[in-house]
Design a protein around this nucleic acid. Structure first.
Length: 479
RNA sequence: CGGGAAAUAGCACAAUUUGGUAGUGCACUAGCUUUGGGAGCUAGGGGUUGCAGGUUCAAAUCCUGUUUUCCCGACCA
């Protein structure tokens, strides 16, 4: 009998096989399961609750900044999609089509939205008439479909949940400001709620969104040093509004095409959160985003113990700290392991032995520390404070790792050495030539993540061709 | 899209080589005893072996196709 059978739940170590570890976590923590159609997954309650929390903190920020939610159609007529050529070229290979309705062949095939720029533009053309109608700050929460070849739960699925904000503005400056502002919102969501440090910057021409003037992104680093594009914010200028005829009468009584942005964050962020924080005992959820924050485990059958447990639970729940009691007949060890697998941030252990000392034990999921805490303290205040402490600790662990795995390179050999032996972010200068990006891609698929605009340059020559360098770029192996 | 591996109960696997009534552990249900790091005993329930064909008296097992998953590579937001 091996260790696995005895333990029943087993996950591969993240240091041994990171990819398998990841899918083990998703499966064992009951976040998602596979369906019969490739790339389409079931979000189980534990996984969906995470998305709901990410959604609620993000949505609140959008609304504070004046955005409104709408719903656009699921289907896009082919002719509409074809209006912007760069856009369709970028998305055509991964679009799914509806060709029949009932048992009738459709006259025009309809694509299942891979993103909704064209739908928003088609709508905006009818409702934007004057500069007085601007800006339009709309967003929608929905799922989109992209026919990916290789799929992995949360990280790359053919259908995924996301949010896509689409705004149109009177001026270029205002639209560009919106693009920056929304990237900053995403940075806050990742750093302040998901405890994931990020870097941000502009995408290179070859990496930008199909049809955009430019794309900004935030990039985060996983436990194994691989990078993940975590959210994007695009500035379109008039590239869509011209072909879609979204024009308005400006303050000089002239027609002008509106300036447009779009920005999105998806359920991929859940995958990033897992790969950034979780460990060999299961999921570790940043406490501010955890759907269930505290589990109370009464030990023994004492009625006094269960009364105190109930009291604690009620106090915490009243203060919106989601708490539940596990008084099932499972053994203590089983419960500990189970809730660790599910990533519950705090565990309160409570038995007769503790009552003798008038204490309870509070254990942290992220670093396994256990503390005896007096029953006389204000438990709500204590947990609220601990949530912040844990959040900061998790953020700092991730940040330290990101800093340790960020390398400065001056030539291809140095890049190879890093990516082949201990991948991470590479800071290196780039001449701006796509050919060099292609050459660098031969190193385990290393791609430019983003251009760092406000940082000191690390060299004067391109890391690849040795010609004069233009930009400081962060490079990484991507998920 | 190329190369490789796999699919048997909720999970992990056995039985496949050599065709012959589909099994084990955990999980699940009931009862009793337990409880400070994955409990014990007793009694139960759960399978058209991914799907579709074919060969055969007989298919989890052999053959063909297909779908899904995982790994490696190419492609791609």
């Amino acid at each position: 009998m091996n260790e696995n059978m005895k333990k029943n739940k087993s996950i591969t170590s993240r240091d041994v096989d990171f990819a398998k570890w990841y899918t083990d976590i998703v499966k064992n923590a009951k976040l998602a399961s596979y369906s019969n159609v490739k790339g389409f997954t079931v979000f189980e309650p534990n996984g969906y609750a995470l998305w709901e929390n990410i959604q609620s903190v993000t949505d609140k920020k959008f609304k504070e900044l004046g955005h409104q939610n709408v719903m656009m159609p699921l289907l896009i007529p082919e002719s509409l999609l074809l209006k912007e050529s760069e856009h369709i070229e970028g998305f055509a290979p991964e679009v799914a089509w509806v060709t029949t309705g009932g048992n009738k062949q459709l006259e025009e095939k309809l694509c299942i939205r891979p993103t909704s720029e064209v739908l928003f533009c088609d709508y905006y053309k009818d409702v934007v008439k004057s500069y007085r109608d601007l800006p339009k700050l709309y967003n929608q929460w929905c799922s989109v479909v992209r026919w990916e070849k290789e799929t992995r739960p949360f990280l790359r699925t053919r259908e995924f949940l996301w949010q896509e904000g689409h705004t149109v503005h009177e001026t270029k400056e205002e639209a560009m400001k919106e693009t920056d502002q929304m990237l900053e919102v995403y940075r806050q969501v990742f750093e302040d709620y998901l405890a994931m440090p990020v870097i941000s910057g502009k995408k290179t021409e070859s990496e930008k969104f199909a049809g955009a003037e430019y794309t900004l992104s935030i990039e985060s680093m996983m436990y194994n040093g691989v990078s993940l594009q975590s959210a994007t914010s695009h500035y379109f200028g008039q590239k869509f509004t011209k072909p879609f005829d979204v024009k308005f009468v400006n303050r000089n009584n002239e027609f002008e095409y509106a300036y447009q942005t779009s920005w999105g964050i998806s359920t991929r962020s859940i995958g990033g959160m897992i790969m950034c924080h979780s460990d060999d005992n299961g999921l570790v959820i940043p406490p501010r985003i955890a759907p269930r924050k505290v589990v109370i485990i009464p030990i023994g059958k004492s009625s006094k113990v269960s009364a105190i447990a109930n009291d604690l639970k009620e106090k915490l729940n009243k203060s919106n700290i989601e708490t539940f009691i596990d008084d099932s007949d499972k053994s203590i060890g089983f419960k500990f392991a189970e809730h660790e697998m599910n990533g519950i941030p705090f565990r309160i252990e409570l038995g007769e032995r503790d009552l003798l000392n008038n204490t309870i034990i509070i254990a942290r999921r992220d670093n396994y520390t256990k503390k005896a805490v007096s029953l006389d303290i204000d438990i709500v205040k204590y947990i609220i404070n601990e949530i912040d402490v844990m959040h900061n600790d998790m953020f700092n662990v991730a940040k330290k790792r990101m800093e340790e795995k960020t390398y400065i390179c001056h030539n291809l050999d140095e890049m190879k050495e890093v990516m082949e032996n201990h991948p991470g972010f590479i800071k290196a200068m780039w001449c701006g030539n796509e050919a060099c990006e292609k050459t660098i891609k031969d190193i385990r698929g290393t791609k430019s993540r983003c251009i760092l605009e406000n940082e000191e340059k690390v060299d004067t020559k391109c890391v690849c061709c040795g010609h004069d360098a233009k930009d400081l770029v962060i490079w990484g192996i991507q998920y």
